[in-house]
Each structure stands twice: as structure tokens, then as C-alpha cells.
């Protein structure tokens, strides 16, 4: 746990770039064990204007790990963890990458 998606090859960004927008959220059938978004959130949804509940969204956490192509180098904007040792000593206990933190 805690791995930054090393197991996933660099194909994800291109899939992201070429994937079509879902037009009818109600028509999508998810694999067994994956929850659909709560239907009541999208009763009157216009095309592509969907709302998603937290439980549905959290399911993506463990799957979508690849860095987006458009993310700039974070150190270039001063966006770096303040304390690298903090991540080592305490990082494992935060459950940030666990999907069952509720």
C-alpha cells in the first residue's frame, strides 16, 4: 500500500485523453462489486451534467493513480511536502489511500 501506481503502465493518460464522455449515466453497467452512482442524484440530469455521491467517487481512488499529463512539476510552484520524514514516520497511518476510511 502507499505505492504511487508503479504497477500501472503509462497508458492511462492516453486513455484519459481519448475516452468519450459518458452521456447516459444510467446506462452504464459496472463490474460486479462496483456501486453505481445514486440514481436520485441524476433524476433530471442534462447530458454530461451528473452528480456523484461520495461512496461512488471513492471507488476510483485505488484505480486512477496515474499522474495527469497536464500536472506541472510540483516543485516548480513550491508545492512540496514540508517534511519528508513526516511521510516516513507517520504517513502510513493516515489511510489516505484506503477507500474504507468512512
Amino acid at each position: 500500500s502507499g505505492a504511487k501506481g508503479q504497477g500501472i503502465p503509462a497508458a492511462l493518460p492516453s486513455a484519459l485523453a481519448t475516452a468519450r464522455i459518458i452521456e447516459d449515466i444510467g446506462s452504464i453497467q459496472y463490474p460486479e462489486g462496483v456501486k453505481s452512482p445514486k440514481p436520485e442524484l441524476n433524476v433530471n440530469a442534462k447530458q454530461g451534467k451528473f452528480r456523484y455521491d461520495r461512496d461512488f467517487l471513492l471507488q476510483f481512488m485505488a484505480v486512477c493513480k496515474e499522474k495527469p499529463d497536464s500536472l506541472p512539476p510540483l516543485d516548480a510552484i513550491g508545492l512540496e511536502p514540508v517534511d519528508q520524514s513526516f511521510a516516513l514516520t507517520r504517513g502510513g497511518s493516515h489511510g489516505r489511500r484506503s477507500s474504507s476510511t468512512a
Binding site: K4, P13, L16, Y52, L57, F60, K65, K67, P68, E80
Partner: peptide, 14 residues
Amino acid sequence: SVEEFWGLYNNIVP
């Protein structure tokens, strides 16, 4: 997209 949000979330500082 939801997918891109998580790609960002998993690669940024909390």
C-alpha cells in the same frame, strides 16, 4: 472528469 481528479489527488501533497 472523475478519473482525472483521482489522478491528481493521488499525485499531490495532502
